[in-house]
């Protein structure tokens, strides 16, 4: 029974981290141009996401 005290919070915490990371990337506009991102990696010097300012 004692195992649950850390196993379950760890499992939920990992899941929540992934969820928050996904939400953040969505809000950050990283899915706005999937085709472009695939091409840009070959051409661009920096890889920081530019804020496209859309909405």
């Amino acid at each position: 029974m004692m195992d649950y005290f850390y196993l379950i919070p760890v499992a939920l915490g990992l899941g929540l981290t992934a969820l928050v990371a996904f939400m953040w990337s969505l809000k950050n506009g990283q899915y706005d141009d999937l085709d472009g991102a695939a091409e840009r990696i070959l051409h661009e010097q920096t890889d920081t996401p530019l804020r496209s300012g859309k909405r």
Binding site: E39, L50, S52
Partner: peptide, 15 residues
């Protein structure tokens, strides 16, 4: 100021 192309939507946004 900046120009950004979106390949998926085939658009360019210019500021």
């Amino acid at each position: 100021e900046s120009a950004r192309v979106n390949l998926s939507t085939r658009r360019a946004t210019v500021r």
